[in-house]
Structures are given as structure tokens and as C-alpha cells.
Simulated assay, not measured.
Amino acid sequence: MSTDRRRIVLFDLFGVIARHQRPGALEKMAARCHTSTDAFTTAYWAHRPPYDAGRQTASAYWTDVLHALSRPADAGTIEDLRLTDIDSWSRVDDRMVTYVRGLRDRARVALLSNIPADHADAFLAAQPWLHDLDHLAFSGRIGAAKPDPAAFRYCVVALQAAPADVLFVDDREENVRAAQAVGMDGHVFWSQDDLASVIDAWLPTR
């Protein structure tokens, strides 16, 4: 075990530190495929889990989506969709970024995000402050996506911690319940002010 016994706040990315998908992005990608937004959205999410979990490449994912829509899966279309998709998940909440970075004075801070590997590469390039955190666990790189217990167990091992040392913060209740099932504390994120109160109570007094 690590000699650093400070508690760990393990953050989700999208919906907590980063914004949810850019409005209009699915409509834009649907138009590129010459299909309805509803049909595109169904195919987009139905084929997403193995891509998020690193069991499928971006090319294979988009090929599956296009085939589900009865559209040709040519390289140009796949790359246009891939880049539009990455851009649609690129926004951060600057106030939360400042809060998370400041929290490192009081706790170890890590990240567990469901994000494909190529998205993670782009996000890291655009947000270099992420490299200052104590650990980054991206589903596309670790081979497990929330709420799979393996994703949380990976973080425990990587951080050389006990589950009880960790507070997991996510905007999805099912992911928080999954973290609690492996022994972590958990908090469903609603706002930064609410979160700050929870973390202040959870961390030992100075």
C-alpha cells in the first residue's frame, strides 16, 4: 500500500467536470449520414458500449453505426463523424476545473471516465491540467466502463488504496451505486456548491 494515506476524491468527467455533449451534435452527425436524428441517436448509443470500454476501434464503431443505418462506411464519412463526435464532448466547466485543481491541497484527486481511447487522447491534448491529477482512468484504455465493478477495482489498485479511502462523484446514480457496492463512498453530483459541502464533511479536518 502507498504511504500516502490521504483520502481520494475520484471524479467522473462528463456531467461533473466536463459538459455533456454539445447541443446539436447528434443532429449534425445525423445529417452527415443523411438519416433522421432519432435513427442516428439509436444507432449511436446502441453500439457505444464496446467502443467506450476499449474493445472496439473508432473505425469499427462507426462502421457498425453506419451499417445499422444502411449507409456506406467509407473512410471519409467515418473520419468526419469521429472528429465531430470528439468535438461534441470537448467542453469543460471552468469553475469545476478550478475547484478540482484546488482540491489537491487537501486530498488526492483522480478521474474515472467512460470515454473511448481516441477521445481521451484529444481531451488530454486540449486539457493539459489533467496530467496534474493523481491518476487518470479512461474506460477506453483500461478495458472496463462504469458501472462495471472492474472499473472501480482498477482505480483502487492503481491508486494503491482501500475502497473506503475513496469518495466517487458522478452525475449518474447507477454509477455511484456501483462504486458503493465495491466499498467506496459515493455522491451523486448536482452542483459544485452541494459537492463542496459533501467533500468538506467527508475529508478529515486539518
Score class of each variant (00 low, 15 high):
Ala178Tyr: 05
Ala60Pro: 04
Asp121His: 09
Gln180Ser: 05
Tyr154Ser: 01
Tyr61Val: 06
Lys146Gln: 05
Asp105Trp: 01
Thr63Pro: 02
Ala73Ile: 06
Pro49Trp: 07
Ala179Asn: 01
Pro147Thr: 00
Arg177Gly: 00
Leu83Gln: 15
Leu167Ile: 04
Arg108Cys: 08
Asp134Cys: 12
Asp105Val: 01
Ala164Ile: 01
Pro50Ile: 07
Ala122Gln: 09
Pro128Ala: 13
Gly76Trp: 08
Glu79Trp: 05
Ser70Leu: 02
Ala137His: 09
Ala125Leu: 15
Asp93Met: 09
Ala46Tyr: 11
Ile115Val: 15
Trp62Ala: 03
His187Asp: 11
Arg95Ala: 15
Tyr61Ile: 05
Phe152Ile: 04
Ala58Phe: 12
Gly54Cys: 07
Val97Pro: 08
Val169Thr: 02
Ala150Ile: 06
Ala145His: 03
Leu136Gly: 07
His119Val: 00
Ala60Glu: 14
Leu69Glu: 08
Asp185Phe: 06
Val100Phe: 13
Arg101Val: 13
Leu103Ser: 11
Ala46Trp: 03
Arg71Leu: 12
His119Cys: 07
Pro72Val: 06
Ser90Ile: 00
Glu173Leu: 13
Phe138His: 11
Ile115Gly: 04
Leu136Ser: 10
Ser90Asn: 08
Ala145Met: 10
Asp132Met: 02
Pro147Ala: 05
Met184Pro: 02
Val182Trp: 06
Ala137Gly: 13
Asp171Ala: 09
Val166Pro: 01
Arg91Glu: 15
Ala73Thr: 07
Leu136Val: 04
Arg106Phe: 06
Ala125Arg: 15
Ala122Pro: 03
Asp64Gly: 13
Ala151Asn: 09
Ala181Gly: 08
Leu69Pro: 09
Lys146Gly: 03
Asp118Gly: 04
Ala73His: 10
His47Ala: 12
Ala68His: 04
Leu83Asn: 13
Gly140Glu: 08
Leu66Arg: 05
Val157Trp: 03
Val97Cys: 13
Tyr99Asp: 14
His187Asn: 09
Asp148Trp: 01
Ala164Lys: 03
Trp89Arg: 10
Val156Gln: 02
Ser139Leu: 11
Leu167Tyr: 05
Trp62Met: 00
Leu112Thr: 01
Tyr51Trp: 15
Arg177Asn: 08
Ala117Pro: 00
Lys146Glu: 05
Ala125Val: 12
Ala150Cys: 03
Ala178Glu: 09
Asp170Cys: 07
Pro49Phe: 04
Arg172Cys: 00
Ala110Tyr: 07
Ala53His: 07
Ala145Cys: 08
Val182Ser: 06
Ala60Lys: 11
Leu111Met: 14
Ala75Gly: 10
Asp185Trp: 03
Glu174Trp: 10
Ser70Thr: 10
Ala151Thr: 00
Leu167Thr: 04
Gln56Arg: 14
Gly54Thr: 05
Gly143Leu: 11
Val157Gln: 12
Asp52Pro: 07
Gly140Phe: 06
